[in-house]
Design a protein around this nucleic acid. Structure first.
Length: 228
DNA sequence: GCCCAGGGGGCTC
DNA sequence: GAGCCCCATGGG
């Protein structure tokens, strides 16, 4: 499952990935992810950002903060209709309100609402548990694990696949897990690197490789021969 | 109006 | 297991 890109040359995949990382970091700098004040906020944001621009998520989270409800137990007690109202800007509010309630119930039932306690659980076990919550898929689970729990897991999203397919590393039809393994097998196992790399990919994706028709006139990856 | 956004689940065949 | 469809708001 190695697709050595001809565009970059014959360097080892690891070096290629690190080179891309360097170019991205050089241009976009530290992204300071996840943009949140607390681990609970990371979890809420990870659910709300599903298939929605972060801009909309900020509005939803601000609504929750304004009412001083961004707290495990307060949200647990909160009427679901109020939750729907607050998260409305983030779209799919009927579903996401249920997902939030489910995650919070999971937190309380399994870990007494203590998020730090949750992260004492091993990565593999906790990942499986999170995936059992309806509405939590691989990307959401991994975002929570990496960005709230500082677990060593690489987050894959649509931009990751789109960009690295266009760069020639992927065919584009790989499963989430395969893409994740590609990065984890070829990158140093470092939480900070995983954190920053995904954030930079999202930055590049939302700024440059936007949509099906890329607009990459000033794309940093052109230095690599990328013809996105 | 159109396309797209830091996905996920359920259904069909 | 690969296709579809649905979810729903907001910015460009």
């Amino acid at each position: 499952m190695i697709y050595l890109t001809e565009k970059i040359g014959e360097e080892k995949i690891t070096n290629q990935l690190l080179k891309i990382y360097s170019l991205l970091f050089e241009k976009y700098k530290d992204q300071h992810w996840w943009p949140a004040d607390t681990k609970f906020e990371v979890i809420v944001g990870a659910v709300l950002t599903q298939f929605i621009s972060w801009r909309n998520v900020v509005k939803a989270i601000d609504n929750i903060k304004e009412r001083n409800l961004l707290d495990v137990y307060k949200m647990h007690e909160c009427d679901i209709e109020l939750i729907k109202e607050m998260i409305r800007p983030a779209g799919f509010f009927n579903r996401k309100s249920v997902v939030l309630k489910s995650v919070i119930a999971f937190l309380i039932e399994e870990y007494d609402g203590d998020i730090d306690k949750m992260f004492y659980t091993s990565l593999e076990v906790l990942r499986e548990k999170l995936l059992m919550v309806k509405g939590i898929g691989p990307e959401t689970a991994d975002s929570i694990l990496l960005y709230a729990g500082s677990k060593r897991i690489f987050v894959v999203d649509a931009y990751t696949i789109r960009i690295f397919t266009r760069l020639g590393f992927l065919k584009g039809d790989e499963k989430y897990h395969q893409v994740q393994q590609f990065f984890m097998n070829n990158l140093p196992t470092e939480v900070d690197l995983y954190n920053q790399y995904h954030a930079l990919i999202v930055k590049l994706g939302s700024e440059c490789c936007y949509g099906k028709k890329p607009k990459c006139d000033n794309c940093v990856l052109k230095d690599l021969g990328c013809t996105l």
